[in-house]
Design a protein around this nucleic acid. Structure first.
Lengths: 305, 305
DNA sequence: TCAATTTAATTGACTCAGTCAAATAAAAGC
DNA sequence: GCTTTTATTTGACTGAGTCAATTAAATTGA
C-alpha cells in the first residue's frame, strides 16, 4: 500500500491537469475537429500505416465510435484505407495530402497554445516543467522505459536506499517493526564504515536512474563471504535480477579466493530461497525467532566454492 | 518564442496524460456519476459554500450545463443550495450528509485507482512522480499555494530515507565520500536498534507524501540530548522547516528533563548554523578533520535548557 | 481438415452529456 | 429611476460516445 498523502497529491495534480488540458483543448474550438478527431488524425499522421484496432487500443476509443470517425475521414478524403495483405480483416490507414495539411494545421494550433502559455513563464521554467513531464512519463509509461536494467557498484545514496526499501518492504509485507530497519542500517553502515574494496562489494541493479535491487558481499573472516541484503523491488520481480545479483556475488567471491558464501534469510522469502537453491546453496540451520515482531523462521544457507 | 522541441515535448506529454487520465476516469464507470459530476461534487465537497458561478469558472463548465447538474444533485438530495444573503441572485452550495458519503466514496475509488497504479511501480518511483507533479504545478499554476508541510514521527523507510538523502547531499555538494553515508547509517541504525521512545524521537517533515526534512534526538547520557541528522531538502529550503524541526527538538528535550542539547555540525552549513545560533546554541569547540575526504571544520554546539 | 472459436471491423439503434440562445431576476452603474 | 451588467435558469437542440448484434477473415484444435 502506497502512502495515502502521496495518492492525494497525485489526485490533486490530476484535477489540476484535467483543467489545464481542458483549457488547451479549446484550441480545437474553431476547427471542424473535436479533440477525439484530432487525436485520431494525429495518431494516423505520426504512425502512418496503423490499423483501426491498434488505434482504438492506444487511444482507448470504442471501436464502433472509431469506425465512424474513420469513415468520416475517408469520406472527407483525409485518410486512405488499404486492406492489410497479411490480414484481410484489417486495414492499413494512411493520411492523404489533404489529411496531412489538416494534421499539420492542428499541430500548429496546438503548438501555439502551449507556446502562448510558456511565454508567460520565467526563464528556465518551461525547461523545468518539461523535464518533470519526462520524469512522470518515464515512470508511468513502463513500455517507454529502457528495457534493460544494469548492475553497477554502489554510489552515494544507494546504501540509504537499501535501508529504506528493505525497511519499508518488510514492514508492509511481513509486519516487521522498525528494529529490522535498524538492523539493516547497522549492517549497511558497518559495510560503508569498514569498506574493504579488495574483499567486499555492493551491487545495485538500476533502470533509468531508478534503483531496482541490491546485494552485498562482506568479509566474514575465515575465508567466508557473507551475502547480505539481497533485495529486488516489486516493480522488477521476474526479470531474473535476483539471480543476476547472486551470480555476481558468487563470481566475485570465487575471484577473491573465499572458500564459502554464507547467508541468512527467512523461510517466507520463497523467491529468494529458490534463487539460493538453484545456485547450489545448502540449508545448514534454521531457528525460530521473534527479532522483529512477528514469529519467523530464520535460515542459514551456505555455498562451498 | 519558446524552443519548438520543448513545445513538442510538452504536447507529447499532454497526449500521454490525456490517455492516462482517461484510464483513471474509468473508475467512475460503475457509479451513477460522470467525470464531470464527480468533479462538481468534489469541488462542492472540498470548498463547502461555493456558488455556481465560481464553480463554473474553476471547472470550466458551461453555466447552463452546471445548472442542470446542480438541479439534479438537489433533487437527489446530495447538495443544498441556500441564497447568498449578500447577493440574492447567487446561492451558497453545501453538501448534505448523503452528498458527503457519496463524495467520500468517489474519493476512495479514485484513491484505489491510483494506488493500484502506484503499486506496480518501483520503490521510490511514486515519490519521484509526485515530486515531478509538484514541479509542474508550481510552474504552471504559480498562484496555487503548496499544501502545508507537516512534521510527524518516523515510519518504516524514513530512516533509510535519511541515510539516502544525507549521503547523496553531502556527496554532491561537498564531495564527501561514502564513509559519511556509513556514519549516518550507523547513527540511524543504532537509533532504531536501541530506540527508547521515552527519551528519544525522530521528526520527519513531509508535504504531500514527499519527505522534506528530518532531525532526531538521541539520549547521550548525563542528561544530555544529542540533536542529530538535521536535514532539509533543497526543494523545501526557506520555508522555516529547519527552524521548526529544531524547535521540536528543544521542546521535546525540555519536556523530557534533559539539561542540555548537544550537536555536531560543520562550518560550511551556514543555514543550519544560523538556525542553531538563533535558537540559542553556543559554539563550544571546533576541530579540523578529514573524516570523509575533503578537509572540513567540525563544530560542537550546545544549548543549556 | 473442417467445425468451433476468436478477432477486426462495421452497422443499427440509442441516449445523454454538453451547447447555444433566450429569459429571469437581482445588483451595480450612471 | 433607467440602463447595464451579472448570476442563474430554462428551452431546444445535436452529435459525441455507447452497447449489442453482425459480418467476415483468421486461428485453434479434435
Amino acid at each position: 500500500m502506497t502512502d495515502i498523502a502521496l495518492i492525494e497529491s497525485a489526485r490533486e495534480f490530476n484535477r489540476f491537469y484535467t483543467n489545464f488540458l481542458g483549457l488547451l483543448n479549446k484550441a480545437y474550438l474553431d476547427t471542424p475537429f473535436t479533440l477525439t478527431d484530432a487525436r485520431v488524425l494525429f495518431e494516423i499522421g505520426t504512425h502512418n500505416g496503423v490499423n483501426a484496432g491498434a488505434l482504438a487500443r492506444d487511444l482507448q476509443l470504442d471501436p464502433a465510435y472509431l469506425s465512424r470517425i474513420l469513415k468520416r475521414f475517408r469520406e472527407e478524403n483525409l485518410i486512405e484505407a488499404t486492406p492489410d495483405p497479411t490480414d484481410q480483416r484489417s486495414q492499413i490507414l494512411t493520411v492523404t495530402g489533404k489529411g496531412r495539411t489538416q494534421f499539420e494545421e492542428l499541430g500548429r494550433r496546438s503548438n501555439a497554445q502551449i507556446a502562448a502559455r510558456f511565454d508567460t513563464l520565467a526563464d528556465g521554467e518551461p525547461q523545468a516543467a518539461v523535464a518533470a513531464m519526462h520524469t512522470i512519463r518515464a515512470i508511468l509509461e513502463p513500455q517507454a522505459r529502457p528495457a534493460a536494467a544494469v548492475i553497477r557498484p554502489h554510489r552515494a545514496g544507494d546504501i540509504g536506499w537499501i535501508v529504506q526499501s528493505q525497511g519499508r518492504f518488510y514492514a508492509e509485507e511481513y509486519g516487521w517493526d522498525l528494529r529490522f530497519e535498524g538492523l539493516v542500517a547497522d549492517v549497511a553502515g558497518k559495510f560503508l564504515a569498514n569498506f574493504d574494496p579488495e574483499m567486499e562489494y555492493c551491487w545495485i541493479a538500476e533502470r533509468g536512474g531508478i534503483n531496482l535491487g541490491s546485494v552485498l558481499i562482506t568479509n566474514g573472516g575465515d575465508g567466508i563471504a557473507k551475502l547480505r541484503l539481497l533485495y529486488v523491488d516489486k516493480a522488477a520481480r521476474g526479470l531474473g535480477l535476483g539471480r543476476q545479483l547472486v551470480d555476481e556475488c558468487i563470481a566475485f567471491s570465487r575471484r577473491k579466493g573465499y572458500r564459502q558464501i554464507s547467508l541468512w534469510t527467512n523461510d517466507f522469502l520463497h523467491a529468494a530461497r529458490a534463487i539460493y537453491q538453484k545456485a547450489g546453496f545448502q540449508l545448514v540451520s534454521e531457528e525460530r525467532h521473534r527479532m522483529f515482531g512477528p514469529e519467523a523462521n530464520g535460515q542459514t544457507w551456505v555455498l562451498d566454492l
